[in-house]
């Protein structure tokens, strides 16, 4: 027991010389990045202005339904409600265009009475319109992304005909495509 006390005293004195407390406010390097935080640390969201096409995959996969999409006349808005988010990073993982990332920024506290006062991260993408009925359809970026993806993956034998079909398809909304598929000559049975 006596030996234990001596050992503990030694440890206390060693502790007194080397406190492990980190600085507050946290240390930053010359560029303003936090030095004591891992790069993989998941914090506030950031949408990439160019890469994000507004497909909405993140809204489907979000486990606490923190990411929501809302369409207005001309654009689609993706908004992340930070007060609801659990920072699991599934939205980042699922994003097909790698247009969403979680920055290491973590200081998101705010004064406020209700959840509406919490920080929101928002991103808007322009929507295309249907040539026939004039309704808004899909984000323009998403249409382009699908076209690119199809061209990469398709069997080269069908490349020409599918591209011809897509030229027509992409201009209309889903309802118009269905109702006018014979007129557009894009019905699947046309190739029989």
């Amino acid at each position: 027991m006596k030996y234990g006390v001596v050992k503990l005293t030694k440890e206390l004195l060693r502790n007194a010389i080397h406190p492990v407390t980190v600085n507050y406010p946290a240390k930053k390097d010359l560029l303003g990045a936090l030095t004591e935080i891992a790069d993989e640390s998941r914090g506030k969201h950031r949408f990439d202005e160019i890469k994000c096409v507004g497909c909405g995959a993140c809204t489907i996969v979000c486990s606490s339904s923190a990411i929501t999409e809302s369409d207005s006349d001309l654009e689609r808005t993706l908004s992340v409600e930070i007060g609801r988010c659990i920072f699991c990073g599934r939205c980042r993982d699922i994003c097909p265009e790698k247009g969403l990332e979680l920055t290491p920024e973590f200081e998101m506290s705010k004064k406020g009475q209700s959840a509406n006062d919490c920080i929101k991260v928002e991103h808007s993408v322009p929507l295309g319109t249907c040539d026939k009925c004039g309704r808004t359809t899909f984000p323009i970026g998403q249409i382009e992304a699908v076209r690119k993806r199809v061209n990469e993956k398709i069997d080269p034998a069908n490349l020409v005909i599918v591209n011809k079909d897509m030229e027509i398809f992409m201009r209309y909304c889903p309802d118009c495509r269905r109702s006018g598929s014979y007129a557009f000559k894009t019905h699947p049975r046309k190739s029989y």
Partner: peptide, 20 residues
């Protein structure tokens, strides 16, 4: 202060950092 230092903490600041 001393009990904080012995627990390898800093304890109440003698000089508060300028930003705070």
């Amino acid at each position: 202060k001393v009990s904080a230092r012995l627990q390898s903490r800093r304890g109440p600041w003698l000089l508060v950092p300028k930003s705070l």
